[in-house]
C-alpha cells in the first residue's frame, strides 16, 4: 500500500510529546493552524491540514511542483529519488539559481520540510538507527564517535565528507543513502532509473516504528510558527495577499479567495 501514513513529527516532538505538554501543544496548535492556513498555499494546506502527511501527498506535491516549473518553461527533471528512495528530488537547468523558487514555495516548501522531519527517527528507533549507521560507517574505515546521539554522528559523517578521500567514497555514500537525514545523495538525472521509489528502505510510516500517542506528535506549535515566519518572508502568494482564507483545498480545482 502506497499510502504510508506519516505522523508529522517535528522539531520539538521528542521533548514535548506526552502528558500536559501534548495538551498545551494541541491547544496552541489549533490557533496556529488557523494562522498558517491563511498564509499557506492551498495545495500544501490540503496536504497538511489534517496534521498528517502521506507519501501520496508528498509525491503529489512534487509532481505539482515539477509540473509548475515545466509550465513556466523551466527544464526540470524529476521527481527522482535520493537516499534510497526516502526522499524525492528534482533538478533544473537555468542560469537563474532561483528559477524554481516560485513553484517550490507554491507546492513544496511546507510539505518538504514536514516530510524531512517525519523521516528523522526518534526514541528507541533513533538509538537503533544510530547504532546501525555507526557500524556502517565504521565498516568502511572511519572511526565514528562511540557516544552521542544521531545528530553527532551525522555531523561526524558530514565533516568526513570534506576530506576528498571520503568525499568520493562509494562505500561511505552507501551508508549515507541508507541512514542519513542530513546528507542527501542523488544521482544526476541521466543516471536515474526513472523509477523514483525503487527504494531498499521504504519511507518511515507512523505505524512502522512509533507508538501513536507516545512519541508521535502532531505538527508542533514552534514549527508552525517557524513555517509562518518563513512563509511570510519568502512567499509572495497572490491569493494570500488578498486577505482571504482559501475555500478550495483540492489541488485539482482552481482555488480562489472568497
Amino acid at each position: 500500500m502506497k499510502s504510508l501514513i506519516v505522523g508529522v513529527v517535528l522539531a520539538v516532538a521528542v521533548a514535548s510529546c506526552g502528558g500536559s505538554a501534548t495538551n498545551s501543544h494541541s491547544a496552541s496548535l489549533s490557533s496556529l493552524l488557523d494562522r498558517v492556513g491563511d498564509q499557506m498555499p492551498a495545495s500544501q494546506l490540503s496536504a497538511l491540514r489534517d496534521l498528517e502527511l502521506t507519501y501520496d501527498e508528498y509525491e503529489r506535491a512534487f509532481h505539482l511542483a515539477v509540473q509548475c516549473m515545466s509550465d513556466q518553461g523551466l527544464e526540470v527533471r524529476g521527481p527522482n529519488s535520493e537516499n534510497n528512495g526516502r526522499y524525492l528530488t528534482y533538478s533544473f537547468s537555468s542560469t537563474d539559481s532561483e528559477a524554481d523558487s516560485q513553484c517550490f514555495e507554491e507546492h513544496l516548501s511546507y510539505v518538504h520540510r514536514v516530510w524531512v522531519e517525519s523521516q528523522i527517527p526518534t526514541g528507541a528507533e533513533a538509538d537503533r538507527v544510530r547504532e546501525e549507521y555507526a557500524d556502517c560507517v565504521h565498516s568502511v574505515g572511519l572511526d565514528p564517535p562511540t557516544d552521542g546521539d544521531l545528530a553527532i554522528l551525522e555531523r561526524f559523517v558530514g565533516e568526513s565528507l570534506r576530506d576528498p578521500t571520503w568525499g568520493n567514497n562509494a562505500a561511505l555514500d552507501a551508508c549515507i543513502r541508507q541512514y542519513s537525514n542530513a546528507i542527501f545523495s542523488n544521482d544526476p538525472w541521466h543516471l536515474s532509473s526513472g523509477k523514483p521509489w525503487s527504494a531498499t528502505r521504504k519511507p518511515r510510516s507512523a505505524s512502522e516504528s512509533r507508538q501513536p500517542g507516545k512519541d508521535v506528535c502532531p505538527i508542533s506549535a514552534n514549527f508552525l510558527t517557524d513555517l509562518a515566519q518563513l512563509h511570510t518572508l519568502t512567499v509572495r502568494h497572490e491569493l494570500t495577499t488578498q486577505g482571504g482564507r482559501f475555500r478550495c483545498f483540492d489541488d485539482s480545482q482552481s482555488c480562489s479567495p472568497p
Binding site: E154, F184, N186
Partner: peptide
C-alpha cells in the same frame, strides 16, 4: 553533467544543524 549545468533542489535540515547536497556522477 553531459555538458548541461544543473541546479539541485535545495537540501533542508531542521533538527540537525547542517545539510549536505551530494550529487554523484557529476
Amino acid at each position: 553533467v553531459d555538458a548541461i549545468w544543473d541546479w539541485s533542489m535545495p537540501c533542508y535540515t531542521y533538527i540537525y544543524d547542517f545539510c549536505i547536497k551530494n550529487v554523484n556522477g557529476a
